[in-house]
Design a protein around this nucleic acid. Structure first.
Length: 776
RNA sequence: GGGCGGUUAGCUCAGCGGUAGAGCAUCGGUCUUACAAACCGGGGGUCAGUGGUUCGAACCCACUACCGCCCACCA
């Protein structure tokens, strides 16, 4: 008897096979078949694997393994993202522990230090993906700041500049006083907060009364340069044009008429602060109003705010302004109010809309082709409802603020001469040359991280160079990603792909489930609601973690993932039990191989009901699994295989053929039964392999086999003529019959040793003979 | 203010036009030599509510109620 452990031991199996797969080059594209390509969403270099990643990359590996078995020339390109703000924040935090700030180091040394950090820890998350079993081509690993990638980013910037799509502009942008940088509209989160609405009274200069304005941000009144009312508002018709003396400041400002003021709101009059509110900025442009910046980058009142307020935090200033106005009797009333508040998506600081000079990309023209390809169905979303989400956003797209006031990132390739002329170049050397001896200095800002990741699919394949990889593997097949980056990332990849390669970057976008904790909250490390996937791999094995996630990954539906309690995670445990079931079924087959282990042992068809039935079920399983994978219904594939393997194969087929398979004497019938059970097992393993790569490989290698690895075996296809609905119906009858007998035995408490007399009222010959031949 | 999901057994979720399913939990029974991480049997559901379409609805349509997410410059 072969010595095989009674329980599946994932640790040793995983440690054994992964290095073999990798060193033998199985993760590389093979053959000359059609290509199937995935460029993975690059995790942040600072990241470590969380459960959402585990799902995301398990999905991609399952797809890649499946397509590889189907004979495609497959490639999955891994990599990481330099993650500007996130990485800079981590390194700054490190510095703070040493009592330093980045300014103590200076830009150059800080960037050096960040590179050191990235070189040291940047590979951690990729190592973790190996633990998961991901069959990615590690030799092609990319980083959004590696040498070739910089080339791609510079090329993009320069081309867009030359084509008039990039411009510099002074306008009100979202400023984060926490991260000390501008951020784009989509990096802002909105939240309603309970606060106050203040009604402030502004007197007219001529002493003829006053006008009341409503505001949630009294401190910005120090920067008011007008008050606006709706032109059709009867109450103010005769007052428009009057001069107001701004309280506390003394500035004379006009009462203007503008549609932007809504008569229904508050008193119908709105204060206008062009430097600190986007709407006010636009109104200011229409009326040529001065723009007074009263809050600085750190969220403190500026000198322009006046001596009494300068240096105060914006929220302290709010209190002081209110006190001062109240002392003058100018606070008309204060009411409770739910204030829509803008927060930085990264650090949750309240955003300060700030007048500032930044670089922008004109999006309208870039968006149109990206809208068209989706409408034409050249790029499809799964689930398809996200197509609407995408289109709605794209059709209302606004210009993209791409400059960031950070040190870690792609520095903007724009130099200015002393006379204020811009030189845009792909490199420092090129800029010097273009400057023709004039003294130049490079823009201090870096690009938004998403500017570089927008180029990911073609850039990782070599663009802007016309590489062989680019020619072979682009456009890619599918993008597997989370729904919260459809705007930030997916849309931009489609836009840049079309712009620079004239091709779509991928034909399918598969939006996978969000992993929530047991209370339905988003899994998050900071909330302490996370589960560590590596601990789960340690405890239950990689296959178990993968299967537990994949079998729940109904397209686009959220997954609630329980936390570890009393050292147990029930969902992964379920998958672990399944792995163990597979192990033991294989063990039974291997213990009873006999001459079936010999190469000359041949598959012999059988007329027996159970044999015809299991083949029919297997055929249906192959068909259903393949179709489910085709439609990104990994959960359905998982469930189908689980049911087939456990219920059909283990509970019925093995049990019914046990007496033959385990017979002590190997008659031709016994050998036939052994060959058949081996066949069903081996085929099942191939079907399970994309979801559970390790255990299927380990068992497959122990079985009689040809070829080097199950990874490289053919994906099963249904065999014509095996459908056999008759066998499935008869087997259904037999199962019902046996269940009924067991039920009766259980009710009457008949011990399993004692035999019962069965009066069969069933005419079906096949059922009768099967019952008679398995009377035990 | 717009839009999108969800509401199915105690829990977590499949099913999305043809006699209600899985895992866990629960109850009863099994050391039946592949597996007690297992095996056998059982109990448990007016499929959120109301109305409609249909021979037939958890599944399609309309409305309602909760829960969640996304978008939006109403001070």
């Amino acid at each position: 008897m072969i010595e095989i452990p009674k329980a599946y031991e994932p640790q040793s199996v995983e440690a054994k096979w992964y290095p073999i797969w990798e060193s033998r080059g199985y993760f590389k594209p093979r053959g000359e078949g059609r290509t199937y390509t995935i460029t993975i969403p690059p995790p942040n270099v600072t990241g470590s694997l969380h459960i959402g990643h585990a799902l995301c990359y398990s999905l991609q590996d399952a797809l890649i393994r499946w397509k590889r078995m189907q004979g495609y020339k497959t490639l999955c390109v891994p990599g990481t993202d330099h993650a500007g703000i996130a990485t800079q924040n981590v390194v700054e935090k490190e510095l703070r522990k040493e009592g330093l700030t980045r300014h103590d180091l200076g830009r150059e040394r800080f960037v050096e230090r960040t590179w050191e950090f990235v070189n040291k820890y940047g590979g951690v998350i990729l190592e973790q993906l190996r633990r998961l079993g991901c069959s990615f081509d590690w030799d092609r690993t990319r980083f959004t700041r590696d040498e070739g990638y910089v080339e791609a980013v510079m090329e993009c910037f320069v081309r867009w500049w030359e084509d008039g799509l990039i411009y510099r502009g002074k306008r009100v942008i979202n400023w984060c006083p926490g991260c000390l940088t501008a951020i784009s509209d989509i990096e802002v989160e909105h939240e309603d907060r309970a606060a106050k609405l203040y009604h402030l009274r502004y007197p007219f200069k001529d002493g003829s009364g006053s006008v009341v304005v409503a505001t949630t941000r009294p401190e910005t009144m120090l920067g008011d340069t007008a008050v606006a009312v709706n032109p059709s508002d009867e109450r103010y018709k005769d007052l428009v044009g009057k001069t107001i003396v701004l309280p506390l400041v003394g500035r004379e400002i006009p009462l203007i008429a503008d549609d932007y003021a809504k008569s229904e709101f508050g008193s119908g009059a709105v204060k206008v602060t062009p430097a600190h509110d986007l709407n006010d900025f636009e109104a200011g442009m229409r009326h040529n109003l001065p723009k007074v910046i009263v809050i600085d980058e750190r969220g403190k009142m500026s000198a322009e705010a006046g001596e009494r307020y300068a240096g105060l935090d914006r929220f302290e200033a709010r209190e002081r302004v209110l006190e001062d106005l109240a002392a003058l009797g100018l606070v008309d009333k204060t009411e409770d109010y739910s204030v829509p508040t803008a927060l930085c998506a990264r650090c949750h600081t309240i955003i300060e809309p700030l007048l500032s000079e930044q670089w922008f990309v004109r999006m309208k023209d870039l968006a149109q082709p990206a809208i068209d390809v989706v409408k034409q169905g050249r790029v499809s979303f799964y689930p398809d409802r996200y197509q609407r989400t995408y289109l709605d956003w794209m059709e209302n797209i606004r210009d993209w603020t791409i400059s960031r006031q950070l040190w870690w990132g792609h520095r903007i390739p724009v130099w200015s001469t002393e006379d204020g002329e811009y030189i845009v170049a792909r490199s420092d050397a090129e800029a010097q040359q273009k400057a023709n001896g004039k003294k130049i200095s490079q823009d201090e800002d870096v690009l938004d991280t998403w500017f570089s990741s927008a180029l990911w699919p073609h850039a990782v394949l070599g663009w802007p160079r016309q590489t062989e990889d680019l020619a072979t593997f682009y456009p890619t097949s599918v993008l597997v990603t989370a729904r919260d980056i459809i705007y930030l990332w997916v849309s931009r990849m489609i836009m840049t792909g079309l712009y620079f390669t004239k091709e779509i970057p991928f034909s399918d976008v598969y939006i996978y489930a969000t992993v929530l904790d047991e209370q339905g909250r988003r899994m998050s490390k900071s909330l302490g609601t996370g589960v560590d996937p590596l601990e789960l791999i340690e405890q239950y094995g990689s296959d178990a973690l993968r299967f537990s996630l994949l079998v729940r990954a109904a397209r686009g539906q959220d997954i609630r993932f329980a936390k570890v309690e009393n050292g147990r995670q029930p969902q992964v445990e379920e998958a672990r039990n399944f792995a163990n079931k597979i192990w033991n079924a294989a063990r039974f087959v291997m213990m009873n191989l006999g001459d079936a282990s010999k190469a000359e042992a041949k598959w012999v068809p059988s007329d027996e009901l159970a044999d015809r039935w299991i083949l029919a079920e297997l055929n249906a399983t192959i068909d259903q699994t393949t179709r489910a994978l085709d439609e990104y219904k990994l959960n359905e594939a998982g469930q189908t295989l689980y049911h087939f393997f456990w219920d059909d194969f283990c509970d019925w087929y093995i049990e019914l053929s046990k007496s033959q398979v385990a017979a002590s004497e190997e008659t031709p019938e016994v050998l036939g039964a052994r060959c058949r059970i081996l066949y069903v097992l081996e085929t099942s393993l191939r079907l399970l392999h994309p979801l559970m790569p390790y255990i299927t490989e380990d068992i497959w290698q122990r079985l009689p086999h040809e070829g080097e690895s199950i990874m490289l075996q053919e994906w099963p296809t249904p065999e014509a003529g095996r459908e056999d609905q008759g066998a499935r119906d008869q087997m259904g009858t037999l199962i019902a019959l046996i269940t009924k007998v067991r039920n009766i035995r259980s009710i009457f408490n008949i011990p399993s040793q004692s035999r019962v007399k069965l009066h069969l009222g069933i005419a079906d010959q096949a059922v009768r003979s099967l019952v008679l031949s398995n009377s035990d």
